[in-house]
Amino acid sequence: MRLLIAAICILPLAACDRPEPAPVQRIALANVRTSSPQVMLESPDTSTAAWVVNQSGQAIHFGEADQDPLITLDCRLQQSPPQLAIIRHAPARPGLSALFPVIGNGMRSRFLVDAKLTDGEWRWEATLPADDPQLDVFTGPRDITATLPGGGMLEIAGSRIPGEFVTWCRAGGQVMQAQDDEQAQASTEEAAE
């Protein structure tokens, strides 16, 4: 019992040896500044935007006719197997990555895009093998939405152009429809003989 009473008396004395905690400094969040503020872009009006084939024929751009593109699909046929790059033309900072969800044609794809410097422009880019199933989000004729965190949402009207382009890239740049038509015609001619 004496030990219990002694322990109870010693505990308050042991607490006296502790230093006082440092005072808490409070600041208003409005006064906090960051070294590099993140610019949040608004979703652009894409009601009159359309897909256009690049002069090289190996890329398609989506945007207004007389302005820089908003998104580009770039087929890189010199790589084996062919690669397809998805480029979101929005300001990017070096060393950053983001998820770029694209929804449409009954699919939801999430592309990991990295900030890349190309032609003097920091932009968001993901490169995948052309046969990657995630790219099927572009292959149907329905509307597509593509959202980049901080870069706004693109509403892309339904079009056959991206689907035909992805199919062309997957075929290594060959026009498969013409070949299929020629083979079907040759088969018909052989059957008629």
Rank of each mutant, 00 (worst) to 15 (best):
M1Q: 13
R2A: 15
L4N: 06
I5P: 03
A6H: 03
A7M: 10
I8G: 12
C9L: 15
C9E: 06
C9S: 14
I10V: 15
I10H: 03
L11N: 02
L11T: 12
P12W: 06
A14F: 12
A14Q: 05
R18W: 07
R18F: 11
R18H: 11
R18D: 09
R18Q: 12
R18C: 08
P19Y: 01
A22Y: 04
P23C: 13
V24F: 05
V24R: 11
I27G: 10
L29G: 15
A30R: 12
N31Q: 15
V32N: 04
R33S: 11
T34E: 13
T34M: 10
S35C: 10
S35W: 05
S36D: 06
P37R: 14
P37H: 12
Q38S: 14
L41G: 14
L41S: 10
E42D: 14
S43K: 14
P44G: 13
D45F: 08
D45C: 15
T48K: 15
V52E: 05
V53L: 13
Q55N: 15
S56C: 12
S56N: 14
Q58N: 15
Q58K: 11
Q58R: 14
A59Y: 02
A59R: 05
I60L: 07
E64C: 12
A65N: 03
D66G: 06
Q67M: 11
P69A: 07
P69Q: 03
P69R: 02
I71Y: 01
I71W: 00
T72W: 02
T72F: 04
D74C: 09
R76N: 10
R76P: 03
Q79G: 04
Q79D: 11
Q79W: 05
P82C: 11
Q83L: 11
L84Q: 00
L84F: 01
I87N: 04
H89W: 11
A90Q: 04
P91L: 07
R93V: 13
R93A: 09
P94C: 03
L96S: 12
S97R: 08
S97F: 06
P101V: 08
V102H: 01
V102E: 00
I103K: 13
G104H: 02
M107A: 15
R108S: 11
R110H: 10
R110F: 08
F111P: 03
F111K: 03
F111I: 05
V113C: 06
K116Y: 05
G120T: 06
E125L: 07
A126L: 04
T127F: 01
D131P: 05
P133H: 02
P133C: 04
Q134L: 14
L135T: 01
V137M: 05
F138S: 01
G140H: 03
D143W: 04
I144E: 01
T145E: 09
L148N: 03
P149G: 12
L154W: 00
L154Q: 02
G158I: 09
G158S: 12
R160T: 12
R160F: 10
I161Y: 00
P162L: 04
P162H: 00
P162W: 00
G163L: 07
E164Q: 13
V166N: 00
T167A: 14
W168R: 05
W168H: 09
C169A: 04
R170S: 08
G172P: 05
G173N: 08
Q174C: 07
V175G: 14
D181P: 04
D181E: 13
E182L: 13
Q185F: 08
A186Y: 04
A186H: 05
T188F: 11
E189D: 12
E190Y: 08
E193I: 11
